[in-house]
Design a binder for these strands. Structure first.
Length: 316
DNA sequence: CGCGTTTGACCTGCGC
DNA sequence: GCGCAGGTCAAACGCG
């Protein structure tokens, strides 16, 4: 079984905080990666993780380049800022359906094909232009996971179709683009390896599934739903271990999942049930700090409380 | 044959 | 306007 571990971090609450504690022990191999909800991040907050020195959390944490955190390139910052500030509730557009069905016109002769192709491209360009002029390109909320895994494409309970791969600047690892294969589901995800730590896979989900998981049965572990792009199946994948009769590693794995779920809960995903999390605790030095906390964040009596620095709790 | 991957071309947005 | 980098398309290909 491959090793997949994760940690969730809410991003938006850290805006403006300059008191990010660095007590997180970076010398060990704290087996968490991270979750970032790009969709909620204000442009003005984008620098926060940089400010926080997120990489101190763990050697495993290497924020995706497009998340701007680990990048020093100003352009990346602005790009993500733009992405994050453009989060809108977009109706499930189906820009892909045309392209999928457009490949089956073999009955026509070459001339006709060429003509139609040109026509099609013209139409497409016009449509894109119209789109562009009418409204800025809209993006679904994004959710990024950093997962320590040997395989790039993590099983998350949904079926994905790869539609592209690009070399990433300043990274020897390409970025792969996937789209949910379900009809009318426009969820996408990007998968890339961390430049700093090749063992870490950065998976960025975009959009919300409009259908249940198609591969794996729903997780029975915590009875929790998961955030956009994350299926119940992913819960089983990321930590499909049931409580009780667990090895140390399994328990650790389970704890990580609980942490994830609780953090997701704190992120404002209403479907997270954190009732199972209260018995889990982490050593003080392992606290993950989230500068500036919401009430919801702090009111969580589960793991999140454990990873919130004490001074922040006082602040509330 | 259906489905998924590969890959080069193309589009888009941004900085200079 | 140009160049660059990210993102997407779609034909070709591979596999079961």
């Amino acid at each position: 079984m491959e090793k997949k571990e994760m940690l969730a971090v809410k991003t938006e609450d850290a805006v403006g905080s300059s008191s990010f504690p660095t007590s997180f022990n970076s010398s060990n191999s704290y087996p968490f990666s991270s979750v970032f909800d790009f969709g909620e991040v204000e442009k003005s907050s984008l620098g926060f993780m940089e400010l926080l020195g997120m990489q101190e959390f763990s050697p495993l944490i290497d924020l995706p380049r497009d998340s701007t955190v680990a990048s020093s390139a100003p352009k990346d910052l602005s790009e993500t800022a733009k992405e994050c500030s453009e989060v809108l509730n977009q109706p499930p557009a189906t820009p892909n359906s045309s392209s999928i069905s457009s490949a089956s016109s073999e009955a026509l002769n070459d001339d006709q094909n060429k003509g139609e192709e040109e026509e099609h491209q013209k139409t497409k360009k016009l449509q894109l232009k119209a789109k562009k002029t009418n409204q800025k390109r809209q993006r679904e909320p994004r959710f990024a996971f950093m997962t320590k895994s040997e395989v790039d494409h993590l099983e998350d309970g949904y079926r994905w179709r790869k539609y592209g791969q690009k070399a990433v600047k300043n990274s020897p690892f390409p970025r792969s683009y996937y789209r949910c294969t379900s009809v009318s589901c426009n969820v996408k995800k990007r998968v890339e390896r961390s430049f700093n730590d090749p063992s870490v896979v950065v998976t960025t989900y975009e959009g919300q599934h409009t259908h249940p998981s198609s591969v794996m049965p729903r997780s029975t572990l915590v009875g929790a739903s998961l955030p956009p792009g994350i299926s119940a199946g992913s819960a089983t994948t990321f930590g499909s271990l049931l409580p009780g009769n667990l090895s140390q590693y399994q328990q650790q794995h389970h704890q990580q999942q609980q942490l994830l779920l609780n953090t997701l809960s704190s992120l404002g995903f209403p479907y997270i049930n954190d009732s199972t999390s209260k018995n889990i605790a982490f050593p003080q030095e392992r606290r993950l700090c989230n500068a500036g906390s919401t009430a919801a964040f702090l009111s969580d009596n589960g793991l999140l409380q454990d990873i919130v620095p004490s001074h922040m709790l006082k602040e509330e």
